[in-house]
Write a protein that binds this DNA or RNA. Structure first.
Length: 424
RNA sequence: GUGGCCGUAGCUCAGCUGGUAGAGCCCCUGACUGUGACUCAGGUUGUCGCGAGUUCAAGCCUCGUCGGCCACCCCA
């Protein structure tokens, strides 16, 4: 029988890695809490139509990367390829967008059928933040400050660069798209294949092209800033002033477009040069028309999502992890000989009652003195209690697990007192 | 989806021009030290990713397939 293995691009996170994830998740929860954002949870599966209407019918994500299937009723469902659509749907459906503002966040798996690569997987985890009901630049600034704060807390600040751009209003975008298309049509034969295909479907994406010839042509193309309405341009200025005011450095990149159709106004991207081709760690922008487009109220929205695997990779590769991160045991209880098993269980229970925070590992599975002590050291525990004997009640020895550790005999009643002092 | 490299014990890898599998680490047992050690003695582990083909014979050649890495692409 062939072994069954995990689906391609869907990873197991093993015990030696979960502490890193927990550290990242905890840091994020604390951050979001400190900014008074609320968590929202919504399903992994939605109607396919939701993603088609929000992300855009002709985007790569919808065209060739979604996990889409029919359920038993014949409805077309899809695994969520990103979080914003579901978040907007849920908020709208439950009246969260009616005459009020919301600051929300979510965390969870997303699914995209891409060819796996370092930092790119078919099931990957995102943490996303969405703010609704605020058309002003202050919330945009706050989101950038918040994300910047996260890099600081994780010790990754020096490895991340912020790029921003202004797409203008939806109307600005259409007008610019027309102008750009008109210009590029004159040079159609020189454009690379992808860009030719995008001419009709998604002109703005051509700005992202890495093809040198295409880039050369783009130098003479109409410029996005020339098509942006006055109010939108002014907002973009205001945001930049705010960023300067709080000391966040950034680069304005007029070619930054984003692959999802719902963006307008501000778009931004935090990138790193430490992860090879998967440079984008966090990105987002404003999407004012989205909730209306999904049939709901016309509520302004702005948000971002970050790739958690990419942050885990950064933390690991750059060694930006707290020292005690792998440690999950404080006290190791060695049980040598079958006579003291019950005594050991009672003792563990007593200790856990007196010191509820203490992480107590009671040895199971037998083994002689030597190997148990070895495991005690390997566990990362700070000290070990040793129960040894063939009788039901043994004296208890304590061994402090450092280089010069001594073994001391403790009387049974004093164990908890001793531990309380030792662990403070 | 396209291209390149790769896939041998739990881990890191070796395996000569094809001849029926090895090392180190880890783990376990015993001896010696009242003891995480050292040293010594011994022990467990693999359908060589999977399937087919060529051959008297394949881990080593051919094809397919699955998986990994990297780039393109895409994006978080």
């Amino acid at each position: 029988m062939a072994k069954i293995q995990a689906i391609r691009g869907m990873n197991d996170v093993l015990p030696d890695q979960t502490p890193v994830w927990q550290y990242l998740e905890l840091t994020m929860r604390e951050l979001l809490s400190a900014y008074a954002y609320s968590e929202i949870r919504f399903p992994v599966v939605e109607q396919t139509q939701l993603f088609k209407r929000s992300i855009g019918e002709v985007t790569d994500i919808v065209e060739k990367e979604m996990y889409t299937f029919e359920d038993r009723n014949g409805d077309s469902l899809s695994l969520r390829p990103e979080g914003t659509a579901g978040c907007v749907r849920a908020a709208e459906q439950h009246g969260l967008l009616y005459n009020q503002t919301q600051k929300l966040w979510y965390m969870g798996p997303m699914y995209r059928h891409e060819r796996p690569q370092k930092g790119r997987y078919r099931q990957f985890y995102q943490m996303g933040v969405e703010a609704f009901g605020m058309p002003s630049t202050d919330i945009e600034a706050e989101l950038l400050i918040l994300s910047n704060d996260l890099w600081q807390r994780l010790g990754l600040g020096e490895f991340l660069t912020l790029e921003i751009n202004n797409l203008g209003t939806a109307e600005d975008r259409v007008q610019y798209g027309n102008a750009l298309r008109g210009y590029l049509l004159e040079h159609k034969d020189i454009l690379d294949e992808d860009s030719q295909r995008r001419l009709e479907k998604n002109v703005l994406r051509i700005l992202d092209s890495k093809n040198p010839d295409t880039q050369e042509i783009l130098k003479g193309a109409p410029k996005l800033p020339d098509f942006i309405s006055e109010a939108s341009a002014k907002d973009f200025e205001t945001l930049q002033t705010a960023l300067k005011g709080v000391g966040i450095s950034y680069i304005v990149n007029f070619g930054l477009v984003r692959g999802l159709d719902y963006y307008n106004g501000l778009v931004f991207e935090w990138t790193t040069d430490q992860l090879g081709a998967q440079a984008a760690v966090c990105s987002g922008g404003r999407y004012n028309g989205l909730s209306k487009q999904l049939g709901g109220t016309d509520t302004p929205g702005v948000g971002f999502a970050l790739g958690m695997e990419r942050l885990v990779l950064l933390l690991e590769e750059l060694g930006r992890l707290p020292e005690e991160i792998g440690r999950c045991v404080d006290l190791y209880i060695a049980v040598v000989g079958s006579g003291v098993q019950i005594q050991a269980m009672k003792l563990s229970a007593d200790i856990r009652r007196v010191l509820p925070e203490l992480r107590v590992l009671t040895h199971c599975g037998g083994g002689k003195y030597n190997s148990q002590l070895k495991k005690a050291f390997a566990s990362g525990a700070r000290c070990a209690l040793i129960l040894e004997g063939d009788e039901e009640l043994a004296e208890i020895k304590v061994r402090i697990l450092d280089d010069a550790g001594e073994t001391t005999v403790l009387g049974t009643p004093s164990v908890c007192d001793w531990l309380t002092k030792f662990f403070r």
